[in-house]
Amino acid sequence: MNGTAEMQRIDVLDQPILNLTWIDLTVAVGLVLIAIGISRWHRTGLARSFAVGAIRTVLQLTIIGYLLVYIFAIDQWYLVVGALLLMLVIASKAAVDRQDSKRAGLFGITGVALLVGSGLTLIYVSVMVVHVDPWYNPRYLIPLFGMILGNAMNAAALAADRLAGEMETRRDEIEAYLALGASSVRAAQEPVRRALRAALIPTLNSLMVVGIVSLPGMMTGQIIAGSDPLVAIRYQIVVMFTLASAVALAAVIVVLGFRRTFFTDAEQLRPKDG
C-alpha cells in the first residue's frame, strides 16, 4: 500500500481535516427533522421511531467513540478480543431477533456462522493482506470486524428468514421428496438454494455497482480523513472481497445449520415451529 508514485498524490490532498464540533452535529439534526416531518405528513407511523433512531445513533456512536479511544489507548490484545466477541454476540442476537421463526438453536447457529464467517475472513485479511502489526492492532481490527460482521449479520438474517419461509411454503414438495426416499438434504435442496441466493445477491449487487452508483462509507471516510483516494480504493477493494467471503460463509453455515432443525433424525419434516 505504499508505492512512492501513489504516496506523492497525498501532497495534492494536503489539506487540513475539517473537524466537526458538537454545534455542527446539532445543525445536522435538521436533516433528521426532514425525515421525521415527511413521516408525520404521510402518517407512516415512523416519526417516533425516527426520533428514537436518531437519539440511539448519537448515543451508540458516542459510546463506541469513547470506547475506541479507551481501547486504542490501553492497546492490549485481550481488550481487543473481548470487544470483538462482544460485537459478535450482539450481532448474533440482532440477526435472530429479526426472525419470525423462533426455532430452538438459531442463536447458536447464527453465532457459529458469524464467528466462522467473520472471524476467518478477519484473520485472512488482517494477516495475509493488510499485515496488521501488532496482530491485535485495534485501529484496524475493530473497524474491519465491524464492517465484516455487519454484512455477515445481514446475510445470516436474510438467509435464515428466507429458508424458514421456503420451508413453510414448500412443505408439500419437501414431503413429496421425502416420501420417495430422498434424504432431508435432497428434499431441502431448493429452499437452501433460494435462501443462499437471497443472502448473497445484495453483496453481489454491491460488487457490481461499487464506485459507479455507490461510494462505500469506509472509502469516503478515508478520503474525507485525508487519505489518497488510490490508497482508499485499495482498502475498499480488499473490503469488498472480504465481505463477499464473510457473507457467503455466514450464509451457508446458517442455512445448513438451520436446515437441520426442520427435520427429525428419521428424516421427517417437523411441524411448523415444532
Binding site: 408439500d172 414438495e173 413429496a176 421425502l178 416420501a179 420417495l180 426416499g181 430422498a182 428424516e267
Partner: peptide
C-alpha cells in the same frame, strides 16, 4: 430412506 423407496406414498394433492 430405503423403507420409503420400498413403500411409496402418493399424496392426495399431486405435487
Amino acid at each position: 430412506t430405503e423403507l420409503r423407496r420400498r413403500i411409496a406414498l402418493v399424496f392426495q394433492t399431486p405435487v
